[in-house]
C-alpha cells in the first residue's frame, strides 16, 4: 500500500455543525436481518427519511445466538406516522421492537480527512466530557454523528465550536 503524508492541522477543522431536532431513536431486533430489511424497505411510502443508522447492542438480547439489533434515527414531519407503522409491522413480522427514545437532538459534522486521521473521537469526547448527556455516537467516513437529549444540543454545539475550527460563515 502506498503512503501519502499530509500535514496535521493543530486545530481540527470542520465544515460546520448541523443540528436536527425532534428525532426518534428506534431500536429493533431479530435473528433474521432480511426480515428487518424488508420491514424498513416497506416503510418508505411514508416518505420518511432516516437520519442515521447504528448497530445497537442490546446487552440483554445479544448474548442469544445471532440476534441482530439495530438503531435508527428518524427525523422529519412524518416521523410519528413512520414510528407507529414500524411498531405495527414489528408486531406482525415477529420482530422485537426494543423501544423508542423521543425527542432527541442530532448534531453532525464532517471535516477533511476525518476518516483517515487519528484523534477525532478523543477530541470530541474530551470536549463533551461529563458536560452533556451523550445518548449515542457514530463516526464513519468523514462524518461524526452525536445524539443528545434536546436540552443538551445547544450546549454541545457551543462546546464543540470552541474546540473545532469552523468556517466563518457558521458564526454569522
Amino acid at each position: 500500500m502506498e503512503t501519502i503524508a499530509v500535514y496535521w492541522e493543530p486545530t481540527i477543522k470542520t465544515y460546520g455543525f448541523k443540528e436536527v431536532s425532534d428525532v426518534s431513536l428506534v431500536r429493533m431486533a431479530s435473528d433474521d436481518l432480511a426480515k428487518i430489511g424488508a420491514l424498513i424497505h416497506d416503510l418508505d411510502p411514508v416518505k420518511n427519511e432516516f437520519a442515521l443508522l447504528w448497530n445497537y447492542n442490546d446487552t440483554q438480547n445479544d448474548t442469544q445466538n445471532d440476534t441482530r439489533s439495530i438503531c435508527l434515527g428518524m427525523p422529519g414531519k412524518d416521523r410519528r406516522h413512520a414510528v407507529e407503522l414500524l411498531k405495527q409491522k414489528c408486531l406482525s413480522e415477529n420482530i422485537d421492537f426494543l423501544g423508542e427514545t423521543y425527542p432527541v437532538g442530532l448534531v453532525y459534522f464532517h471535516g477533511p480527512h476525518y476518516g483517515d486521521r487519528y484523534g477525532i473521537a478523543e477530541t470530541v469526547f474530551k470536549t463533551l466530557d461529563g458536560k452533556v448527556e451523550i445518548i449515542a455516537a457514530g463516526f464513519s467516513g468523514a462524518a461524526v454523528y452525536l445524539v443528545f437529549p434536546m436540552d443538551d444540543v445547544k450546549t454541545a454545539v457551543s462546546l464543540l465550536s470552541q474546540t473545532f475550527e469552523t468556517p466563518d460563515s457558521y458564526h454569522e
Binding site: L33, A34, K35, G37, A38, H41, L53
Partner: peptide, 9 residues
C-alpha cells in the same frame, strides 16, 4: 437501507 439489509440477510 431496507434493501441492503434484506440482500445481506
Amino acid at each position: 437501507l431496507g434493501k441492503i439489509l434484506f440482500a445481506f440477510g
